[in-house]
Amino acid sequence: MSDPLVTLVFYGIAAVTIVAAIGVVSLRNIYRAALCLVLTFLGVAGVYILLNADFVAVMQVLIYAGAVTTMLLFAIMLTRSPGSPRSNAANRQSGLALFAVLVLVVLLVLALGTAVWPQTAPVAAQSSVDVLAKQLFTTYALPFEIASVLLLAAMVGAIILARED
């Protein structure tokens, strides 16, 4: 990350991500908010790429920017009045939200301040997908199999909810 160009790109991506995230919570049309969410996900994918986690970035684009957003847009279309300009309703809980954000910031600053950071850059001998796949199918084999059960539960739940009889 010492390269000034990389730092510049990081700030550019971070700015786009934050502006898009503000759009998600501030736009009053929920459909536009969902499209801003796509941009936020893509920005996060860009940060992953800068962190050398290219496979995680691919997952981010495919699953979050692709599948999760599709799911969200379907959910919006399935509701009763999706097109109303005030569909992303505001509420009067900004004080509570500010408190929650402050608590989170304090916790994050404490955690980041006390963490021990490695002083030398890790050697990128393998591509990140290699390391990830090796870990996934050896150390984390059981969580991987449980993920399939979770997906199965989601499928069965959707079928029971959406069947018309």
């Binding site: 599948a67 799911m71 379907f74 959910a75 959707a158 909810l161 959406a162």
Partner: peptide, 16 residues
């Protein structure tokens, strides 16, 4: 802007 039939939900979830 119309409400779509809930059957679409299954296809969205299968896609995910």
């Amino acid at each position: 802007w119309v409400q779509f039939p809930v059957r679409f939900y299954i296809f969205a979830l299968l896609f995910v």
